[in-house]
Amino acid sequence: SSASGSGAPAAAAGGLDGGGPRDSLSLEEILRLYNQPINEEQAWAVCYQCCGSLRAAARDPRSRPRRAPRRRLEAPAQIRVWKDGTVTLAPGPGDPGEPPPGAGTLGYSHCTETEVIESLGIIIYKALDYGLKENEERELSPPLEQLIDHMANTVEADGSNDEGYEAADEVIDEEDDEKRKISIIRSYKDVMKLCAAHLPTQSEAPNHYQAVCRALFAETMELHTFLSKIK
């Protein structure tokens, strides 16, 4: 059912470069292959995993082969989901082993942790909004909307969110009140805490979110293989 829609097979057939085995996919490739937005659980998982790798890189940059320098994200093509469920930022111009910035590049520059988080929040929202018309808005669950609101720094001045979610009352409980305690996101760790608090058991967050991203990679590759065979 994921591939339903007239554009999906054509998009999928041309969605990946090369025919050999792949160890990672960009978020853009995933969106194009499915021709639909990511689901909420995948959004939580990509946020958690991406902030985890950014945090690890920030703490010990020399030990990370998939190094992720601090810079704003401009496109889903810069987020890579790996076969093992790791999520990293794609190397950019000027990074070790990469060509220097030139004409037509995205013009990366080093920036603060909160700026990276803000840009990640925006990219994740756009992945949730993928394919929707300009005058349409996806109804997100309040906790995820709150996470993105805080990441993207779009929270209203009084700290309240826009409550356009009609079914909000039925899911707000003490657990949500606990999550509201983090009113300002300042670090990758804050994002990871909120993502972990989304789960019934917070200690399961590393394994759970890695499994979600691993499944996202595997299912996308399966879809690509399937659609390629049909073509």
Binding site: I122, E134, N135, E136, E137, A152, T154, N161
Partner: peptide, 23 residues
């Protein structure tokens, strides 16, 4: 488990989509 379908509503001027688009 989350349903694969999601609800779509008209874009609201004070909604998250409008706020994100202004970033």
């Amino acid at each position: 488990k989350e349903k694969s379908l999601y609800k779509i509503k008209p874009k609201h001027d004070s909604g998250i989509k409008a706020k994100i688009s202004m970033k």
